[in-house]
C-alpha cells in the first residue's frame, strides 16, 4: 500500500520529465549524432566521420580564439561582479546604511531589464553619434573615450554584464545573510568582535554556499556570452567578428554557414568544457567547506 502511494510521485514528476526529455535530452542526443557526420561538399549527402569533427574543432584557431576570449572575460569580470555584489550585500545587511531597503530594490532593478534592452541602452551610451561617450569627448575636447573600439570592446561588454547582474547576485548573498541567527551576532558583540571580524568570522562562512552557487552560474553565463556581443555587432561590425565568442561561432556556423554538423560539435565541446569547469569549482567549493 505505502509503496503504491510513493509511486504516485511519478504523477507529479512525469509531466516535467516528458517535456525535459524533448527539450534537453533529445537535442543533446541529436547534437551528438550530428557531430559524428559531415556534409559532402561536392557529392551531396552526409558521411559518418567518427570523431573527425571534434579533432577539427580542437585544431580550429577560431574556436580557441573565441574560447580564450570568454576565458579572459570570465577571469576578470566574474570576480569583479561577485565582489561588488558581496560588498553591496554586506553593506545592506550591516545596519550601518541609511535606507538599506531602498538600496536593495534599486540595485536589483537592472535584473528586471531585459538583457536586450540593457545592451541597446549601453550601446547608445557608448556610441559617438549621441550618448554619453560623445558628450564626454565634447566636454573635454578629446576623442579618448571610445568604448566600441577594439581594445575597449571586451571591457565595455563586461561593464554591461556587471551592470545587469550585480543586483541579482547581491540578492542571493543578502538572502543567505538573513539566515544567520541574531544570537550569533550578539555573542560576537559580547566577545568584543568588531565589524570586520564579524564579517570574517560569521558572515563570510555563512555565505560560502551562496558564493559557490553564484560563481557556477556566473561561469556558465560567461561561457554562453552571446546577446551582448551579437547586438553590439550592429554598432561595431569590424571589431566583433562572427567568432567573437564560442556561442556566436556556433550560431554563425549554423545560420550563416549552414555547417550544422560542425556547429553542433562546437556546441558540444563548449558544453563539456563548461560542465568540467563548473564541476571543478563545485568540488573546490565544497572541499573548502569541510
Amino acid at each position: 500500500m505505502a509503496r503504491r502511494q510513493e509511486a504516485k510521485g511519478w504523477v507529479f514528476v512525469g509531466p516535467f520529465l516528458a517535456v525535459f526529455a524533448l527539450t534537453f535530452l533529445a537535442p543533446i542526443g541529436y547534437a551528438v549524432y550530428l557531430s559524428l557526420y559531415r556534409d559532402q561538399a561536392f557529392f551531396g549527402g552526409t558521411v559518418f566521420v567518427g570523431l573527425d569533427n571534434y579533432a577539427e574543432v580542437l585544431r580550429d584557431p577560431k574556436f580557441w580564439e573565441s574560447a580564450g576570449r570568454v576565458l579572459v572575460f570570465l577571469v576578470v569580470q566574474v570576480p569583479v561582479m561577485l565582489i561588488l555584489a558581496l560588498l553591496a550585500a554586506l553593506a545592506i545587511d550591516s545596519a550601518r546604511l541609511r535606507g538599506a531597503s531602498f538600496f536593495r530594490i534599486v540595485l536589483f532593478l537592472p535584473y528586471a531589464v531585459p538583457g536586450v534592452v540593457a545592451v541597446l541602452m549601453w550601446g547608445f551610451l557608448y556610441g559617438d553619434t549621441f550618448g554619453l561617450a560623445a558628450d564626454l569627448n565634447d566636454l573635454f575636447g578629446t576623442t579618448v573615450v571610445q568604448p566600441l573600439s577594439g581594445t575597449w570592446m571586451l571591457p565595455s561588454i563586461a561593464n554591461i554584464v556587471t551592470w545587469e547582474f550585480v543586483g541579482y547576485n547581491m540578492l542571493i548573498f543578502y538572502s543567505a545573510l538573513r539566515t544567520v541567527p541574531g544570537e550569533l551576532y550578539e555573542a560576537a558583540a559580547i566577545d568584543g568582535a568588531g565589524a570586520i571580524r564579524t564579517v570574517r568570522a560569521i558572515k563570510l562562512p555563512a555565505l560560502r554556499g551562496a558564493i559557490v552557487i553564484a560563481t557556477i552560474f556566473s561561469i556558465i553565463g560567461s561561457f554562453q556570452l552571446f546577446n551582448e556581443p551579437n547586438i553590439l555587432r550592429t554598432l561595431a561590425p569590424n571589431v566583433i567578428t562572427t567568432y567573437y565568442t564560442p556561442n556566436m561561432y556556433a550560431y554563425n556556423l549554423s545560420f550563416a554557414g549552414q555547417q550544422f554538423n560542425y556547429s553542433a560539435t562546437v556546441a558540444i565541446v563548449m558544453g563539456v568544457l563548461t560542465a568540467i569547469i563548473a564541476y571543478v569549482v563545485q568540488l573546490r567549493g565544497s572541499r573548502e567547506a569541510l
Binding site: 534537453f24 533529445a26 550530428l34 556558465i220 554562453q224 553542433a264 556546441a267 558540444i268 558544453g271 564541476y279
Partner: peptide, 24 residues
C-alpha cells in the same frame, strides 16, 4: 536517477543547447 539527470542538465549551458534544439 531523476536527480542525477537533472543535476547533469543544469550544468549544461542553455545556449549550447539552443543550436541543437533549433536543428531538431
Amino acid at each position: 536517477a531523476v536527480f542525477a539527470v537533472l543535476l547533469g542538465a543544469i550544468a549544461i549551458p542553455g545556449t549550447a543547447l539552443a543550436v541543437p534544439t533549433f536543428l531538431l
